[in-house]
Amino acid sequence: MRRYLPSLSALHAFEAAARYMNFTRAADDLGLTQSGISRQIRNLEEFLGATLFHRSGPRLVLTETGANYYRNLALTLDRLEEISIDAVRGRSVDSSLMIGTHPTLASRWLPERLGAFIGSYPDIPLEVMPAMPSTDFETTQLDVAILRGVGTWLHARSIELFPEVLAVVASPALIPPGSKLDPLQFAEFPLLQNAGRPSLWLNWLRLAKLSYSGRIQGTRFAHHEMIINAAIHGLGLAVVPTFYIRQEVANGQLHMPFGEPVQSDDSYYLVYPERKFHNPNVIVFRDWLLRSLRKA
């Protein structure tokens, strides 16, 4: 018998639209036009005999049927992707460990530790991918993630690894080392902004118990890796987590002219989907990471 299945194109269009809650962004993601996305979703709704979206003013909202369909479809598409990858590379995704984290953590903090893990567990292939605090752990294909937050993610378990500590740093080319500056003098220098964390300067002021009412503006960069490099080149002051810049501070590329670091309200956590609680590779990585941090 012929299977009762809608077209894969329609499923792709619906999954992207539900993920972004925006037809235009879904169209950009899939390389289609907005009208093409609308047409595919209309065809899918006609096939299912159900309404998947409705409008609430300017916002796009999933119906209850649409929300349930999206939740199950995302898992199904993830699984379909996994078995397709298995066919290409000749091994099961289940044998590997997929780790998600912030781009800067993935490039600065994680690699220096993964060598020890690979040496101890050479039979567990690793894949490192970008992940955000907004990761949906009900549908994600990640096995574990290392994320900044307050420790609460839906459909996931989390273990605190270490608190976040923030510092204002500068290049010696911008401010000579040994300069004695009042913390509020930060406003006299160009500032670097984190587009992903636009309130970092305000957070630093609050945590440092400084009263400042002026404007805070400056060149914006996408994430900490870009900001650190910009600070090293003297483009401005930056607020960054101290564990990212230990080497740069130690070798004098950056220094802290406005006082000691301050602990933020966030910490970094090991997070993994509730459904993967018994996954043996997750257990091995979790226990190894906690042991290695205790020894550090």
Rank of each mutant, 00 (worst) to 15 (best):
G36Y: 07
L237M: 06
M256Q: 06
A67C: 00
N229I: 08
L32V: 07
N68P: 00
D143N: 14
L73Q: 07
A195F: 04
L191I: 15
G90N: 07
S267F: 00
Y4T: 06
I85N: 03
A170N: 04
D78R: 14
V169T: 12
V249E: 12
A167I: 13
S35D: 11
L184P: 02
R220S: 15
I159K: 05
R59M: 09
Q247N: 04
S107I: 14
L293Q: 10
A26G: 05
E260K: 11
G49Y: 09
I124G: 04
R275K: 15
F258L: 11
F221M: 09
R55P: 01
L237A: 07
N68R: 10
S9P: 02
S292Y: 03
T24C: 01
A116R: 11
V282C: 05
L97G: 02
Y70E: 09
Y121F: 15
R89E: 09
A131N: 02
R113K: 15
T51R: 08
D265I: 13
R89C: 08
Y272A: 03
E248P: 04
Y4P: 03
E82Q: 15
R2G: 00
T152M: 08
L97E: 03
R197A: 11
I283E: 05
H233R: 12
P103M: 11
Y69N: 08
A250H: 07
M256L: 14
M98T: 13
A16D: 05
E64N: 11
E274P: 04
D287A: 02
I232C: 00
T101H: 04
V282P: 01
A238H: 01
L32M: 15
N203A: 14
E127K: 13
G218H: 10
V262P: 00
A238W: 01
F277E: 15
R108S: 12
E64P: 03
Y212W: 11
G119F: 03
T139I: 15
H255R: 09
Q217S: 14
V150G: 06
N251R: 08
G259Q: 05
H233K: 09
L5T: 07
R148W: 06
L44V: 10
T65Q: 11
A16T: 06
F47S: 07
A50D: 10
F277K: 15
F258C: 04
M256H: 04
Y20D: 06
N68Y: 00
D265V: 15
S56T: 07
L52M: 14
V240D: 02
F162K: 03
K276Q: 08
K180F: 05
L48W: 10
V128Q: 04
P125K: 10
L191M: 14
E248S: 12
Y121I: 11
G196R: 11
Y121V: 08
D28E: 15
S267N: 01
P177Q: 12
N203Q: 12
L207I: 05
T63W: 05
V128T: 12
V61F: 07
A50V: 14
H155N: 11
P130Q: 02
G151M: 01
Q185P: 01
Y269W: 13
L207Y: 13
N229Q: 15
T101C: 06
P257L: 10
V165R: 09
N194R: 12
P280I: 06
T101M: 13
A173F: 01
L166D: 10
S7V: 07
M21A: 10
D78N: 14
L147D: 02
E164I: 13
S9K: 10
R113A: 09
P257F: 13
H54A: 07
D28Y: 09
Y244H: 11
R291F: 00
S171L: 10
A131G: 02
N22Q: 02
